[in-house]
Amino acid sequence: MSHDDETVVRRRLLRLTAQPPPGSVSAEPLPASPAAATPGASAALVSGELSAEPVADVGADPPAGSHVDRLLRPASADRRPLESGPTSPAGVVADEPSVPGGSESAARRLPGPGAFDPGRRGVRALAAVAVLVVVAAGFWAWRSRPQAEPVPPVAGATVPVTDGVVEPVASPSAELVVAVAGKVRRPGLVRLPVGARLADAVQAAGGALPGVDVALLNPARKVADGELIVVGVTPPPAAAGQPVAGGAPAAGAAPVAGAPVNLNTATLADLDALPGVGPVLAQRILAHREQHGGFKSVGELRQVDGIGDARYEQLKELVTV
């Protein structure tokens, strides 16, 4: 008893809240002589300055018994708050009857902040661990960032990789090349930035000749790479369905049966006319074209919601890009 009180006082002085009463665990299955256990118990009194290398200490002779003690301790400590009454069953914890004021002793034995306190040296070790963790996590994240590989068939073009992000547009240079023909000042090839409208293309070709109405070509339409824009010339009906007809379908020419529909230039009506494609699906195809700046391959059609494998098989012969 008096020893216990003494240790309590000493413990508070030393800012360690938990100090064992003598003989705290009786159910010790392993032979741990008092002499072996004592250095461990006494060592703990020391001011929360805890060694950062517990593993090394386990191997040493005197603390070996104490290590067993520590392994067993959580179970008995968990039990303690429940056994706060003086009528707690003897034999589970041998010294329990010798502790007066059950609730007070329970409160005294609950792990206080001291049990959580790693101390200065402990924090030093934890900080070293944290630095290792941060370095390892950074290395791992860097190593497993997505790796984009270049497309083999494209002539020497590498898909640019910026910080693990693949450029959403496949064109290696962020530039479109379109042909502008017909009644413009400088017909020929023009280079445009991605996302350019038809009006930009006409402007880049020097602008339409006086008296030519561009409105029918839909100047707001986004142009796709490799497109031919014919200004002010009504294409002959036989050519209306050809893939490079530009904005011509807007002029009312129906696609010729059998000629593939260009996904990048087709209107809602053209797509609607395809077998198995209704107005809703046609609208989705147009929306996909707007979002992604045109179709680069027929296979991209499968990415449109509502086009499954079966419908794609049916459509792929009827469309082109």
Binding site: A18, P21, G40, A41, A43
Partner: peptide, 19 residues
């Protein structure tokens, strides 16, 4: 018992009775 709190080799064990 070392009240000065100097870290020693065998001080890894927290006082008995608490985890």
């Amino acid at each position: 018992i070392d009240p000065g709190g100097g870290p020693g080799p065998a001080q890894t064990i927290v006082a008995g009775g608490v985890p």
